[in-house]
Amino acid sequence: MIRRLIQFVSAFAGNSYLLGFVRGTIYQGPLKSVCFPGMNCYSCPGAVFACPIGSLQAVLTQPGALHSIAVGKPEGIIFFYVLGFIFLIGSLVGRLLCGWVCPFGFIQDLLHKIPTRKVGIPRQWRLMKYAILVVFVLLLPLFLRDGFGVPWKPSADTAAVEHESPSDVKATGKTLFSEDPGSPWFCKVICPVGTLEGGVTLVSYDRISGRNRFSLGFLFYFKLSVLGVFLVWIVMAKRPFCRTVCPLGAIWGIFNKVSVWRMHVDTSACTKCLACRKVCPVGCSIFEEPDSAECVRCLDCVPKCPKRCISSGTGRSAAVARPVSKVVSESPP
């Protein structure tokens, strides 16, 4: 199946630094400044590109990040590169790369094939990913700072502060934005992608090779438990990480409604037979909402619809444009 092949090739391409697995190190070349169009941890020994959600947090956790962005310092402007990268893909194809390129989406698709009792996911849980995006990817990395606990102290003279050295700022307390770095909270306490691709691989490498680079504490075992919960959940439910947690999917999902590439459903021909929902990797009822933020645009449903009412493209779809009677007469009884 072509989608599986593309998923495999992109997962391999994104993690093709095989030396990393042999040496227990990570790739450090210039390609690491290029974002990968999917969730792929940059601490994976094989990762050649940077994770966009990790990169977004890396920019926001810099000392005085908001200030750098606001006054246009080069280390702040790079925020627009990362955000622009994510938005550009979203505005062109919405969530399409979730279905075709993202390695963690691929892993979830494969794990879900393990035969066991399957469960659904309550509809409201999908809202969680937006809260996670806002709180753990944006607000906490920006505002929860080491040392002070609070990020900034009001100052009467911000312009003057800009010219002071960090030590002066600390001494006088005159800073609008903290000079302490923040933490990438999504990576730190939630992301199972990092635990699986980076944590488990590097820690296993250390155990096997006898190198002891990392001292494992509560946080590691906490993240390992989060990963464990996800792995079980992934086997039992369709793509739970994508549907309830992933901040990248949350952003791209919003673009599903306005992107250039769209899904189309000829609702007048649809008999609501649910054949599309049965094959959907995220359990979408596309006939109810073709622009749904949950649809990963895998196109699995397109050939499965007996009435051929689902299509995709940049313009008006063939199925929608075709007279309904013709569509019906072409379909098997």
């Binding site: 190190t25 990570i26 790739y27 450090q28 070349g29 210039p30 690491k32 400044s33 941890c41 940059y42 601490s43 940077a50 994770c51 990790g54 990169s55 890396a58 920019v59 810099q62 246009g72 310092k73 080069p74 280390e75 702040g76 402007i77 790079i78 925020f79 627009f80 590169y81 990362v82 955000l83 622009g84 990268f85 938005f87 550009l88 933490s183 990438p184 990576c187 730190k188 992301c191 990092g194 635990t195 980076g198 944590g199 590097l202 820690v203 990392f214 001292s215 494992l216 504490g217 946080l219 590691f220 906490f222 993240k223 390992l224």
Partner: peptide
């Protein structure tokens, strides 16, 4: 926005984070 970020931005912070083993990602830091 993307071009602005690429042309005027300093790739340093992203590259730094991406080329060190990120302790938060792997659950150590």
């Amino acid at each position: 926005v993307f071009v602005l970020g690429v042309s005027l931005g300093d790739i340093g912070p992203v590259l730094h984070k991406a080329t060190q083993i990120c302790l938060e990602c792997i659950g150590i830091g």
